[in-house]
Simulated scan of single mutants.
Amino acid sequence: MKTTINTALAATAATLAILAISPASAKDAIPQNQLVKNVVLVHGAFADGTGWRAVCDRLTQQGYRVTIVQNPLTSLEDDVAATKRALAQQDGPTILVGHSWDGTVITEAGVDPKVVGLLYVSALSPDAGETTAKQYEGFAPATEFVLNTGEDGFAYVARDKFKAGFAHDVSDADATFMANSQVPINLAAFGTKLKNAAWRTKPSWAVIGKEDKAFDQAMLLRMARRINARVTRVSASHALFMTQPEVVADTIDTAAKAASK
């Protein structure tokens, strides 16, 4: 069955009150004046960790220790658990980065005391007590971002729409490979409410693709403003984590240096 992401999420959306939280500040657990040299990268739906390769290479050349999470995309709890396992490997303060769906994941997992900064790459950022699906309410449907959803609730981006909706700024060959190798997500995850919102206590940055077809631009900007993110906008598709590695890596470097002061 074909549907836009707004329609597919309607069945799982739940309107919940925004809850305030106050997890322990990262500065309570991380020594002051310690350089931030750890970065954890978390991929979004319909992709896997290999898409971060160019970002990883740039950061590694700059001396950062990079860990890439391979999310199962089976539930919010499972993706958060995978991210927490990666954070447990870090030996000091860490910048946590999420693309798309995994903005939700880093929002939940980012309360870890090792996390001293968050970067949202065209990513979702619900509040505690909200669902991911709620973020779409009131915004225009992403008509070029079309999903095929199976009876089991797992969704893929429609192959014939993949390049237009997900990655119009890659070659035809690369878009075909990405479409053929995409990892489906359990859409029920979009109906799970968050317990924590790390952006309430951690500094946040956002890189937004101005040609992103997966989200309404107004939606991305509204989320970035709400979390008080330092925003960089770049001409790119939803796949900007692959197509704009220099911008993403430079923003991570900026965040790390700011958190090191």
Results as ranks from 00 to 15, higher is better:
Asn71Tyr: 01
Lys261Cys: 08
Ala188Val: 14
Val116Cys: 15
Arg233Tyr: 00
Ser100Asn: 02
Ala167Tyr: 00
Thr7Leu: 13
Ala17Trp: 04
Leu147Ser: 00
Leu118Trp: 09
Gly209Ala: 07
Gln32Gly: 09
Leu194Trp: 02
Arg233Ile: 08
Glu211Asp: 08
Thr232Ala: 10
Ser235Phe: 00
Leu221Glu: 13
Phe190Val: 13
Cys56Pro: 05
Val247Ile: 12
Val69Cys: 11
Val157Glu: 04
Ala14Thr: 14
Ser235Tyr: 01
Gln89Ser: 12
Ala29Gln: 07
Asp169Trp: 00
Ser122Gln: 05
Asp79Ser: 13
Ile208His: 06
Tyr156His: 15
Ala249Ile: 07
Gly44Thr: 07
Ala239Trp: 01
Pro93Ser: 08
His99Asn: 14
Met223Asp: 05
Lys210Trp: 00
Asp102Arg: 12
Gln90Phe: 01
Leu87Tyr: 02
Leu19Cys: 03
Ile5Asp: 07
Phe166Glu: 04
Ser22Arg: 07
Ala128Asp: 02
Leu147Gln: 00
Ala249Phe: 04
Ala188Arg: 08
Thr83Pro: 00
Asn228Ala: 11
Ala224Leu: 06
Ala229Cys: 09
Val207His: 07
Gly191Asp: 06
Leu240Glu: 09
Thr7Val: 14
Asp57Ser: 07
Gln182Met: 13
Asp48Gly: 15
Lys114Gln: 12
Pro184Trp: 07
Trp205Val: 14
Ile30Trp: 03
Val157His: 01
Thr67Ala: 08
Val42Asn: 08
Ser122Val: 09
Ser75Gln: 10
Lys195Gln: 14
Pro184Leu: 13
Gly209Ser: 06
Asp102Cys: 15
Val36Gln: 03
Gly44Arg: 06
Lys193Pro: 09
Asp102Gln: 14
Glu151Cys: 03
Thr243Leu: 02
Thr12Gln: 01
Tyr156Asp: 15
Thr232Val: 14
Thr4Tyr: 00
Ala109Glu: 03
Ala20Met: 06
Lys27Phe: 03
Thr254His: 02
Ile95Trp: 10
Thr3Tyr: 01
